[in-house]
Design a protein around this nucleic acid. Structure first.
Lengths: 167, 167
DNA sequence: TGGGAAATCATGGGGGTCAATGGGATTTGA
DNA sequence: TCAAATCCCATTGACCCCCATGATTTCCCA
């Protein structure tokens, strides 16, 4: 269950786009056959995730004080603006017009893996941003502090499985 | 059992409105075929939930000091003003005049998912508020601290089922 | 290791089905 | 008895299922 790589697919004239096989494979243990999309806060992009990730967001919002302003805002922007998009028989989704417009998508869609989640971009917008991001990372000499293997969930390490996990 | 997305439906001249199919699907394990609505105490909107969620609210009120002013007020505003609205054969409810007036609803109703609950709005009122929410979220740099997977209810994680959990 | 066969994936499009809506008919209840 | 709620059916348009084709990738064997 990990989204990696950039996959560019075509948006057909019915507004459909194939979800990359690799992403579908990462989701095949989900009970809901499809993905969730919502507008990114910061970027001209769409945030994508699984049903169980959306459940996780909802459960986390439940934890915040039920009547707090912050929880309210997050509920409106994430849960209220999300679209639940089931696959058709060929593993495609219909991209709602509202989201196409928001992300300024034309005839191609870039699916960009971000680990537990992913993003959808107009490839022409994403490409220069990706290069800028790469340059910043190099200049900064950024290093990532890795979590020890022992803290990873079962099933994410070689030689371990979860009883019911068929991935 | 997760309410997501914004669905705009028409209020017909008999005061009926279709409950979005996705919301009905999220409720299909409920014994009561319908929804509960009550006036929001913060917004010009209606709060909606399932029968079992209403039970949960009642149980939470029990925990508050039985004779506190707060419990009194909440009991009045939530339980006292709530309407139990069954579907007709087509999955519609009749929106009581009192609630239509309170939420200043005209000919359209926006069903807005908030995870365990949802809200009903006049779309023209909701839209600018949602934009404001998005802006505040962005400015605040809000990030949601996600609960660990292991604390989620069964059925919300891949590879688990809900057979024993009908909530 | 190269090349060809076979399976899989991405894409295009037709048509059937179902959700949303509108309105008439019948029942219920005050 | 009248009003309001429920049932029933018709319409329509969006969505989903299906199949066909083209493009890759994978696999297998020489």
């Amino acid at each position: 269950m990990l989204f990696t790589g950039t996959h560019i697919h075509k948006l057909d004239r019915k507004g459909r786009v194939s979800v990359p096989k690799r992403f579908r494979a990462a989701l095949d243990t989900e009970e809901f056959a499809g993905i969730y999309l919502y507008q990114s806060h910061k970027e001209s992009a769409l945030e994508g995730c699984s049903h169980s990730h959306m459940e996780r967001i909802a459960a986390s919002l439940d934890e915040l004080d039920m009547f707090s302003d912050e929880a309210d805002d997050l509920a409106d922007t994430i849960l209220g603006s999300s679209h639940m998009l089931p696959y058709d028989g060929e593993g495609r989704i219909i991209l709602p017009a509202e989201l196409i417009e928001f992300a300024r998508i034309e005839d191609q869609v870039a699916f960009v893996g971000r680990g537990r989640t992913f993003r959808l971009w107009n490839p022409d917008i994403f490409k220069p941003l990706q290069e800028a991001s790469r340059t910043r990372t190099l200049n900064r000499g950024a290093t990532l502090k890795l979590k020890p293997m022992s803290e990873l969930p079962k099933g994410a390490r070689p030689g371990t499985t979860t009883e019911e996990d068929a991935s």
